[in-house]
């Protein structure tokens, strides 16, 4: 495990890799929060922030979905801010970023035995994104016009842990190849 952590530290010490991981993490976080409905339109311009419900910080509204504690409005965007939803999104974004960076390193660095570590990370993307769509924002299904919300809603409790598991396994697999 120490060797894997050292490899992660080595990766994030590399400026280009750090930029890649950060970019993916931020993009993924924003996408996740948008799909779960925490971020959406409806802003009236300007900016405004209020945090009236800190007592609800641990209250769940669905599988891996927590109550917002505040509302941040910037321009046309409204963010109903939940620290735990944001933390979850950032964790998955970080895992996604590390997966892709590790896959990139595997491809770009000459190895005797190049394996398919990067491919696994892509497997984790759909369940992670669908976790939002199925849980509290049927937005994406409405846009797609798919009458499969019923099936996805039943899967909601498994989508986030499934995504975390896939992302973790993918990263572990890629790092194993890198440290060899």
């Amino acid at each position: 495990m120490k060797r894997l952590i050292k490899m992660i530290v080595k990766m994030i010490s590399h400026p280009a890799t750090l930029l890649l991981i950060s970019g993916i993490m931020v993009s993924y976080t924003l996408l996740y929060l948008w799909l779960t409905g925490d971020m959406a339109g409806g802003g009236l311009g300007g900016w405004h922030a209020t945090f009236p419900a800190w007592e609800r910080v641990f209250e769940q509204r669905g599988a891996f979905q927590f109550e917002p504690v505040g509302l941040v409005s910037i321009g046309g965007v409204v963010w109903t801010f939940s620290p735990l939803n944001t933390l979850l999104a950032m964790t998955m974004g970080l895992l996604m970023g590390l997966n892709i960076a590790a896959g990139w390193w595997l491809r770009t660095r000459p190895r005797q035995c190049r394996l398919r570590g990067a491919g696994t990370s892509w497997l984790a993307l759909p369940p992670a994104l669908l976790a939002g769509g199925a849980c509290c924002a049927p937005l994406i299904l409405i846009w797609l016009g798919l009458p499969i919300a019923g099936a996805l809603a039943g899967m909601a409790p498994y989508l986030v842990p499934g995504a975390l598991l896939l992302l973790s396994v993918g990263l572990w697999h890629s790092l194993q190849q890198l440290v060899r």
Partner: peptide, 30 residues
């Protein structure tokens, strides 16, 4: 007592009518 984005309807709009509320749009559940 809750924080929600009350300027946005997650399903669509009634004014003007669109999204899930449009007469021809599909239902989501069996």
């Amino acid at each position: 007592g809750f924080v929600r984005n009350y300027r946005r309807d997650p399903y669509g709009s009634y004014n003007p009518i669109s999204g899930y509320y449009a007469p021809d749009s599909r239902r989501l559940f069996p």
